[in-house]
Amino acid sequence: MHCDLSPLLSIIKAMWLILASQNDASALWAFHGLRDRGLQPLELIFAEMLPFSLRWEHRVDARESSITITLADGRIIRNSEVRGVLNRLTHVPLQHLSGNPDYDYASQEYSAFFMSWLSSFRGPVLNPASSQGLAGAWRHISEWVWLAAQAGLPTPKYRQTSADDIDEMVELRKLFPAGTPTVTTVVVQDRVLGQSLTPEIERSCLKLAELAQTPLLGIDFAMTAVGAPWQFAGATPLPDLMLGGQPLLDHLARSLSAANGKPNS
């Protein structure tokens, strides 16, 4: 009698991925922390090596998507074998093509390709790719402050005009002047880590992550004066994970191991 071992084999082959830039200290910290918590095999793949992959094979049809990457160092990554992903890819580094007349075209093509690849994982991905960003949507500060207010967080007044003396290609708008003291909290799925918050603010942080469809979210609060209530100052899908300390690693490990990305509480 034939015994189908493929389900068992797929479990044996299961791996976790961390996708990040080689300069991403948070990713390196998370790599060691998650490996110590038993997420093995855990592969750390730097964005800088992806364009030099020996082979990409991405197939899409009416029923499924698959992808196999053969990296230049010999590692082979199959999406079907990936149990969970810590995704901190922001862009596709193509410096080796700079000066090429097709650079802009190649850049658009690689970004579009990565967006599709990152959308074809079956397990939990923190953060999932969005059409507005490879590691979750990059939102303008006007959208963040609007969303934060919808989530119930205290927000400052935001103003933007056509006469503003700013080029957002080189300088990001901010809600508070440079130098304003801030604290950062990190949402990981259903937990808020890194700062002690009131239950109300904590619920609003979780709501903001939900509205933004960004399950791993850093949220900054400005402290404008001693004793004054904190105010929303910004948010990012690429928080400094180290701010959440060991509890963040514990919860991240549980989230990436859960079948649906949501750990049992």
């Binding site: 207010a149 935001y158 933007q160 005009t161 056509s162 006469a163």
Partner: peptide, 9 residues
């Protein structure tokens, strides 16, 4: 010209 303000959402 245009001015945008966001107050309390």
């Amino acid at each position: 010209s245009i001015e945008l303000e966001i107050v309390n959402g």
